[in-house]
Every structure is written in structure tokens, then in C-alpha cells.
Design a protein around this nucleic acid. Sequence first.
DNA 1: GACATGACGTTACTACATAACATAACGCCA
DNA 2: TGGCGTTATGTTATGTAGTAACGTCATGTC
Lengths: 164, 164
Amino acid sequence: MLAPAFSKETDTLLAQARTLCDRRGVQLTELRRKVLGLVLEGDKPTGAYDLLDRLRVHHKGAAPPTVYRALDFLLEQGLIHKVERLSAFVGCIHQSEDEDHHHAAQFLICQRCGQVTELEDPRVDRALVEAARELGFRPAGSTVEMEGTCAACAAAPASAPAPG
Amino acid sequence: MLAPAFSKETDTLLAQARTLCDRRGVQLTELRRKVLGLVLEGDKPTGAYDLLDRLRVHHKGAAPPTVYRALDFLLEQGLIHKVERLSAFVGCIHQSEDEDHHHAAQFLICQRCGQVTELEDPRVDRALVEAARELGFRPAGSTVEMEGTCAACAAAPASAPAPG
DNA sequence: GACATGACGTTACTACATAACATAACGCCA
DNA sequence: TGGCGTTATGTTATGTAGTAACGTCATGTC
């Protein structure tokens, strides 16, 4: 079970994640760290079974529950997000030690190039929380996703979607 | 292939849907009408395979594509919505002939009783569209869902979630 | 040393969704 | 009126996503 090699950027994020988990008293185990690394390495949202395939390279005998448990942990800790429309996972770009584990994020999904952009727009969250509150609804978590065409693809000729 | 019996409320909505499709020049076939009826009858979001089971009662030989094609049509026409977090479908309560086929809706999902409430809050949509516009993103469709506890369940004792 | 806890292994299964090709009904129009 | 395109549906098979249930192993603790 060798350690996979991650990019420098990923290693930095992994180090941050380690610090965060230590402070919270939760275990960023080797397995969970690997899965987080795989999610972070992808420049696009990655499906659980795709992660599983990659995980198996260095982690023999990995099965669906192996990946899903790790993903559940990472979601709980707010280290990754799930993009519901894609049934896929992305690393969270807004890691912050002091924040709630699950901060409210929004995603813009480009139908042309597949690129996903994470937003953290307070106006959107505020509007949603307010609308819920008016109905006496107590929010626990939200999914906000918008599909469409990103700026790069809108500018590119029809035959050439902006690359990943 | 007998016609299933729907409630009076559902029949009313089906009649509206019929009118709307006629005006648009699209075909609300018997099959599509049945599936729409089944979705509308449910007081909670219904999964595709649940719909399939019910469809089979009156529609021998129905298979997954039978249901999914009908659902795709109904989604296109804005007659139903998909709740991504539940992989399930609900009837749209905001049918309007003049509107876009896909209007921006939001959903509040109660984790206790499973009830789903559709909102159509202009503030939420406006905030999201604005945030996207600032990044040069051209919106095509959005998913906005919030999970939590509905007013009824929040008021009810812990052991007795408010009924469906 | 018995026992609780948390992480992970392993097997099997359930649920969700689509590909690919066949068939049938309809309108069109040459 | 026969051929053709279009749209809806039938049919078979397969791909993808997610979970249940139970076993094992390490660690801590009383």
C-alpha cells in the first residue's frame, strides 16, 4: 500500500486538512487522506467509482464502502462537497478552521467544458435562509447549483469548448 | 391498459397540463399523462422505480426507459421537478402557460417527515443569477434545495414527527 | 482482561439511469 | 400510394451510484 504522489498544491491543502482535523480531534487517517488527495487532484468533480479505481492503484482491495465512508467523513468535515447534479465530489476551496464544518457553497457547472466553480456568495445563502425562516423551516444544509455556460466557453467558438 | 383513477385534484392539474401542452404543440400522450398523474398523486417526491412499479399496474411491460422518457418530457415542459438530493420527482405547483418551461424553483426538504415544499422566491433566484452574471456565467438551469426541519416537525415532540 | 469505540475489510445487494436497437403510428409530398 | 422522415414507445442489456450487514482489528479505559 504505497503512498500516491500528489502535486505540491494538493500536498499543501492536505497539510491544512491535517491541521484542521487535529484541532477538531478527528482522525484524518491515511485512507481518508488518500481519498481527499484524489478529490483535490481532479480539476473537475470526480465520481465515487472513479475515485475507487484510482484508489485501487495504491490501495489493494478497496471496495465501494471504502470510498463512501471516506467521502462521508470528508463531507462531514467540510473538506469536500458533493455536486448533486453530477453525483460527483470536489475539494472545498474555502477551508477555514473557525467556520462551521458545512459552510454554504454554490456551484456553477459549465455544460460545455464540465468545469465547476465554487462560489460562497453571502447574498445567495442569505436569501435562501431568509426564505426558509419565513416558513419556520430550520436549515441544516443546502445545495445550490447552477448549470449553464462559463465565461470562457461563451467566448470560445462553438466547435472548441474552453479546455478543462 | 386501463386508465388509472386519479384524485379530483390531480385530474384538475392534468387538465391544465393538457391545455398547456396543446398550446405548445407538444404531445401529452396517454403514457406521459399517466406518469404525470402518478407524480402528482404522491404527497412526497417519488422515485423513478417507484413510479415504474405503479405504472406497471395499468401499463404492462413498462421498463425503466418507459418511465425515464416520460419524466424527461415532463421535466422539459416544466410540469415536474427533480429533487436532486432525493433522486425523486415532484409535481410542479406553479404551472403557468406564459412562463418559461423551466422556472427557477427552490425546495425545502424536511429530514424528519420527508415533506418537500416548493418555493418560488424571486430573491433567491435573483441573488444566484446575479452572482453568476458577475462571473460571466450564462445560466441555463438551477437546483436549489435546503434540508432541515419543517415548522410542523420542529413543533412536534421528538418521538412523533409531523405526519407526511 | 473484559469491554466499548472507531476504522476498515468483505460480501452482497438495492437503487438509479442510460445505451442501443426494434417497432409502430403519423404526416407529408412527390 | 408508396417511400420517407419524425416522434413515441417497446425491449434487452448494461452501466453507474449507493448501502446493508456483518466480521476483524487496533486502541483506550476502567
